[in-house]
Design a protein around this nucleic acid. Structure first.
Lengths: 416, 416
DNA sequence: AAAACTTGATTAAAAATTTTAGTAAAGTTT
DNA sequence: AAACTTTACTAAAATTTTTAATCAAGTTTT
């Protein structure tokens, strides 16, 4: 039984209001420390809203239980250096499961983003049939075996996946979606762990907010440019979910009147003219018609992927550069609509196409200049994501921990 | 000197931390009461976060000072009825100044929305030159004279006006905008009152949120259909401002590629094909070309206004009905983009064109059906605003009071 | 290098608040 | 009319917050 669970049980089993309050304050302290990573006693007093002596006692108790530790000293501002407190390593271990269309990536990280079991990818096909969810369970169990994971060490599972995820109900209305099937509840029952489910793009936005280009910002648009086009909306320093959790469906904004049929059923969605899918289709078609481009040298045209286009563009291939510029122009036009509505302080460009650097950012910026009002655009900075390989898993850890605390506290409070 | 100012001064002049805390809690109590209008002792204990005895003492003190009063008793839920507390009438009196393009409307209301001095409209031309702001001061002074207002009774001024209002700086980048002129500071200096400035559409959204169709909702789009098209975005139960305060500039989303030139400098803005301005221009042009419509009977075609079109449409004029349907279709298309991005629980249609009822709502709904994803639209309700004549002034009162408290407390806290 | 000045940590007594408990008041339901 | 609920109010006990004082550990000035 984990140290953290003991603490949560203390809230539930407290006999007097006062013990209960104290236990709740300890939880609050833990959550604050997780959120801010490292804080001094004084900062904790401010953030949690307690006095120095009380806070000191709570810290002493949590230190004794090995839930937190005094870490290296902070910077002096003209006097004695303050002690920085931090959550202990391994207090909360998350199995990160990142589902993509044709693969699933897993790794285990703790609350301090230490990698306990390294990342491994498995081939996996996402499905619309709820019955296929058992395939995911099999892959997870395979990972446990491959890495010799002791399941007891896992505190919770964080699952990121594409689709319209109803965050209030735990359902995904795109995949595994028959009969309002609650993915989170089903996995929890089968795997005996708390399971937090989040849409992949919102997870990415959370990562940018916590560790990336959106750090310490209030209102940001995170654009994910990949096979599809995703949008994470950050408002008031939080990832905005929308009423059901469907906010940010930018790829299916209708963009072309009576345009191409989209797989979503509508016509002229942004993704039908500005996305990795579109570019690959367009390139295949053009290559077949003999357009001169380095892409012709690919061994297998059927296997053409966005990164191939980006690679040759970065090598100077004019055709690919034009393709990407066109993508940028159209995306810029769409982003300009968003900027008009949301007046963000920053736009973060991420996903594979962000790797094209100025080949895509300049066309985007050009469209923004053309299609947004001066005053609204002027102070809006455009950034390219700098997150590394496991950046998105870190965001998933954050979501999972917060979700775990929230659902546990809700349960404890409504039960009493 | 007002009763409320005494209370605020108490915060500033408190000698011990404890007195200061108590004074701050009294202010918090007042703000909570203003926000929720009527609360029981128990509710106040919950909302403000104090114990029964302490809260009781605060209430006793504020009652003695005539800042609040026990009002009628609440409903019984099986036992003794609780006393409902409310702010006293006249604790905070706001001069509401609603600036429109060719007129300004004024009235004085107190914290409980009692009208102290009735509404009066004055002809007034909004200007882009900061020097013309003195004209506004003259009109305000004229209102004071006309209504025999004792200036001492006015606690603050709430000013609503169109334009890009930078809420952090108090500037309007559209009107009175030379040299980053701070309207709020200038008026405060000249009129010796706190002045809160808010964009007219955001004021309308606030009214819908507090008293209208968006009550108790979290995520709502308020569409204002008038000469122009405005959008107020409500997120997490608050009117979303954007980074500078420019959120919601829906009318200038570029909607038609290489379309008509808009007065904002860009081409093809939504307002150039879907707005009161467009409809009036279109109607004038068509009437001159002999289109059959009841609008021909108007005495003066140059004076054609949106309400004329709505009137004859409601009388069954086919031409006007088509005009409005076209407006609805285009607006619906634009709204569908917003819904895709923000997944709101509700859309509130307001402004003069909302008076056209189903003549405009049906075309809007039709476009929404066509252009938004099923899952996102399904639970999104479309409502028509039901706010009466002084509904928007009430929202302005709310904004003004909150702004007054916030700026006063900020000043007190940074000064100590 | 020492002295003076800052800031942080820790402790203890005084003041205030929150719990807790008990009683009375004012309703509703049986 | 009796039994039960909820609210209001009061007072003692428990706890926390203030306040103040002392020591520790830095930085800056002399």
């Amino acid at each position: 039984m984990s140290l953290l669970e003991d603490l949560l049980r203390e809230v539930g089993s407290a006999k007097t209001t006062i013990k209960r309050k104290s236990a709740l304050n300890k939880v609050k302290l833990m959550m604050t420390l997780f959120d801010k990573e490292m804080l001094t006693l004084g900062e904790l007093v401010q953030d949690v809203g307690l006095s120095f002596p009380t806070m000191n006692n709570l810290i002493l108790d949590l230190h004794k239980r090995k839930l937190l530790i005094p870490k290296e000293k902070g910077e002096s501002i003209g006097g004695r250096k303050p002690v920085l407190y931090q959550l202990n390593d391994g207090v909360f271990n998350v199995l990160c499961v990142e589902v993509e269309r044709f693969s699933v990536r897993m790794e285990v990280m703790d609350n301090n983003n230490n990698v306990l079991f390294p990342r491994k990818s498995y081939p996996f096909e996402i499905s619309t049939d709820e019955k296929d969810i058992d395939d995911l369970i099999l892959v997870i169990q395979q990972y446990y075996i491959d890495m010799q994971v002791d399941e007891q060490e896992i505190s919770a599972i964080g699952l990121s996946m594409p689709g319209l995820i109803n965050y209030k109900q735990g359902t995904n209305q795109t995949f595994y979606s028959n009969n309002a099937f609650n993915i989170s509840a089903y996995l929890k029952q089968k795997l005996d762990k708390h399971v937090a489910v989040i849409n992949d793009v919102k997870g990415a936005a959370l990562s940018e907010l916590a560790y990336g280009a959106a750090q310490n910002k209030e209102n940001v648009l995170v654009i994910l440019m990949d096979w599809g086009i995703g949008l994470g909306v950050i408002i008031d320093g939080k990832v905005y979910m929308g009423n059901e959790g469907f906010a940010g469906e930018m790829g299916h904004m209708v963009f072309v009147d009576e345009g191409e049929l989209c797989y979503c059923g509508k016509r002229g969605c942004l993704e039908t003219i500005a996305s990795g899918i579109f570019l690959v289709n367009q390139a295949r078609h053009d290559i077949e018609n003999g357009v001169p481009t380095l892409l012709k040298n690919l061994p297998n045209l059927a296997d053409l992927q966005p990164q191939h286009i980006i690679e040759v563009a970065n090598q100077g291939d004019q055709y690919a550069i034009d393709l990407i510029a066109n993508l940028g122009n159209n995306l810029g036009k769409a982003i300009s609509l968003l900027i008009q509505i949301l007046n963000p302080e920053s736009v973060v460009l991420s996903g594979k196409f962000a790797k094209a650097g100025s080949l895509i950012t300049i066309p985007i910026q050009q469209s923004l200049n053309k299609y947004t009002m001066n005053a609204i655009r002027q102070k809006c900075e455009i950034h390219v994501s700098t997150l590394g390989e496991n950046g998105y898993a870190q965001g998933l850890v954050r979501y999972t921990v917060v979700d775990y605390f929230k659902s546990n506290l809700d349960a404890l409070i409504t039960n009493n």
